[in-house]
């Protein structure tokens, strides 16, 4: 049945019926996309998880919120019934991809970008609503192909919702891949052409092996060097070529080689009065 849906969409898409939204997987170049729901119904007054399911052709990938040295993050624009609201994408921990000396962050194979949708309390139980999204992505191997699809899902409103077994595993994996917010402190400092981040603690089980900046234009995308100094892990990045000012909050995703990553805020220390001093205690 799923296969015939794919065929139908592909067939329709071939005839350029733009503006149609698909309540089924859409096959595009090197990727299949679908708007899916964790539960088979929505409950008034509760949040629900929807997700953009991405099935990449092996070897191809799409991008994280910070795509790295090239690429573009996947973008969603929602068309929702009155009173419904969509949060930003709850980005799962991405992978680092290397192409020569260029670095990117993103997703490959089967991935799901979850989005929390708030359902208004006054939504009528027994009715059915349609949630629509326009998804735009860039899928790359070494070469890249931009894609766009209008997707929709029809869901009933009910007093209780049960998980849709078709997507339970995909949502479970996407939730498990959510980075935990670290309660620990970190401090970033700009020292010449480097950015150093000292971690008091990390909430990771092991010392970090890599770190990805959630923002662009702060640090270069190459992996940082990681050293132990005075009982702290110190990550040293090259400053981004496009650094203009230190952001108020600098969010870093810390990885330890396990599936669980930690998101830590590393605010910048005030710039020293005379810049470019590189000797530090």
């Amino acid at each position: 049945m799923r296969l015939s849906n794919v065929a139908a969409c592909f067939f329709l898409a071939c005839f350029g019926l733009g503006g149609l939204a698909f309540a089924a997987p859409v096959s595009a170049d090197h990727i299949e996309v679908e708007l899916v729901s964790e539960n088979s119904a929505l409950v008034p007054g509760h949040n629900a998880w929807l997700g953009l399911r991405l099935k990449h052709e092996p070897g191809w990938h799409t991008y994280w919120i910070n795509p790295g040295d090239s690429g573009l993050p996947t973008k969603l624009s929602w068309t929702l019934p009155t009173g419904f609201k969509a949060d930003p994408i709850a980005w799962p921990t991405p992978k680092r991809f290397q192409l020569g000396e260029l670095y990117n962050f993103g997703y490959e194979l089967d991935a799901l970008l979850p989005v929390s949708i708030s359902v208004p309390a006054e939504a009528a139980i027994g009715s059915t609503v349609q949630l629509g999204v326009e998804a735009k992505w860039l899928v790359c191997h070494e070469e890249c192909v931009p894609g766009k699809a209008n997707l929709r899902i029809d869901l009933p409103l009910a007093a209780k919702a049960t998980p849709d077994p078709a997507f339970a595993a995909a949502f479970a994996a996407a939730h498990a891949a959510q980075p935990a917010k670290s309660a620990s402190k970190a401090q970033a400092r700009l020292i010449g052409d480097r950015v150093e981040v000292a971690l008091d603690a990390t909430d990771l089980r092991r010392p970090p092996t890599d770190a990805f900046a959630a923002q662009t234009k702060v640090v270069a995308n190459a992996p940082p060097t990681i050293a132990e100094r005075g009982g702290k892990s110190v990550l040293t990045f090259a400053k981004s070529d496009y650094f203009t000012a230190a952001p108020e909050h600098f969010e870093l995703l810390l990885l330890d080689g396990s599936a669980k990553a930690v998101l830590i805020d590393a605010p910048f220390a005030p710039a020293p009065p005379s810049s470019s001093s590189s000797s530090t205690p």
Binding site: Q98, T209, D210, P223, P224, T225, F237, A238
Partner: peptide, 13 residues
């Protein structure tokens, strides 16, 4: 292993 190897390499390419 790859990540570790890269980590040991200087990031200032």
């Amino acid at each position: 292993a790859l990540t570790t190897a890269l980590t040991l390499a200087a990031p200032f390419s």
